[in-house]
Amino acid sequence: MNLYRISHNEFVDMEMYDSAVVVAENVEEAKKIIPAHWIRNWLPDKDDRDSWVAPEEVNVEFIGVVDADYLDMLNGRTTVVSSYNDG
Rank of each mutant, 00 (worst) to 15 (best):
D18I: 03
G87E: 02
A54C: 11
E28D: 14
M73R: 12
V80C: 01
N85S: 09
N26D: 12
A68G: 12
L3D: 12
I63L: 12
I33D: 01
D48K: 14
V60K: 11
I34M: 00
T78Q: 14
R5M: 15
R77E: 10
R40E: 10
K46G: 14
K31L: 00
T79E: 01
H37G: 08
E15R: 03
A68I: 12
V58N: 05
D48R: 15
I63C: 09
L43G: 10
V12Q: 01
R49D: 03
S19F: 04
L43C: 13
L3A: 14
P44A: 04
W42E: 14
R40W: 04
G87Q: 00
E61Y: 06
D48P: 06
W52D: 09
N2W: 03
Y84V: 08
N75Q: 02
H8I: 01
R77W: 05
E56S: 06
I39Q: 08
V80H: 01
N2P: 03
N85A: 09
L71N: 07
A24Q: 06
R49E: 04
D45N: 13
S19W: 11
I39L: 09
D13L: 09
L3Y: 10
N85P: 02
A68W: 10
V53M: 08
F62S: 07
M73G: 04
H8W: 00
V81G: 04
N41V: 12
L74G: 02
D48A: 15
Y70V: 09
S83Y: 05
H37D: 05
Y84E: 07
N41E: 15
N2V: 03
D45A: 13
N75R: 02
N75E: 02
N26M: 02
E29R: 11
A30K: 06
L43I: 14
S7N: 08
D48L: 15
V65G: 03
F11P: 11
F11H: 11
V12L: 02
K46Y: 15
P35S: 05
S82K: 09
D86K: 09
V65S: 05
V58I: 08
V21G: 02
N85E: 08
M14V: 11
V81M: 07
V58T: 02
R49L: 08
Y70A: 08
E29F: 11
L43R: 15
A68E: 15
Y4A: 02
A54E: 10
Y4R: 02
V53Q: 07
V23Y: 09
R5G: 11
V80R: 00
K46C: 15
M1N: 14
Y4Q: 02
R5L: 15
V80G: 00
K31T: 01
S7V: 04
D13Y: 07
D45V: 13
P44N: 03
E29L: 12
T79A: 01
A20M: 03
N75S: 03
Y17L: 08
V22S: 06
N41M: 13
R49T: 11
A68K: 13
D86P: 00
Y4D: 02
F62H: 13
R77N: 10
G76W: 01
N59Q: 12
D72M: 13
R40F: 06
D69W: 06
I33Y: 02
V58E: 08
E10P: 12
T78Y: 13
N59K: 10
E29Y: 12
Y70C: 08
A36D: 14
P55F: 00
I6H: 00
